[in-house]
């Protein structure tokens, strides 16, 4: 299982809001493909899938906040 973790974004930034998941739970995802976007007061960010497989879980939904270091989703590697 490959966890998607909200990365460090700066000293004072403790959380970010998930703005968009490119896939639904259960969808197949490919490594290097855009998977999720989120934003802080300062900027919008996007991360790519680190592995190919199935997007097993979305634990922070669109519009919800996540803390830095929190697992926001999981990919079951194939």
């Amino acid at each position: 299982m490959k966890e998607i973790i909200l990365p460090e974004l700066g000293e004072d930034i403790k959380e970010a809001t998930v703005s968009f998941w490119h896939h639904k739970e259960g969808d197949e995802v490919k490594a290097e493909e855009d998977i999720v976007e989120f934003y802080t007061d300062k900027a919008n960010f996007s991360v790519k899938a680190q592995a190919s497989g199935i997007l097993k879980a979305i634990s922070v939904k669109e519009g919800e906040k996540a803390s830095v270091g929190q697992v926001i989703g999981e990919i079951e590697e194939r």
Partner: peptide, 15 residues
């Protein structure tokens, strides 16, 4: 507003 791409595989180096 533009989107900044983040490479999660860099996280250990960031740390």
């Amino acid at each position: 507003k533009a989107v900044k791409r983040i490479d999660l595989s860099l996280a250990p180096l960031v740390e």
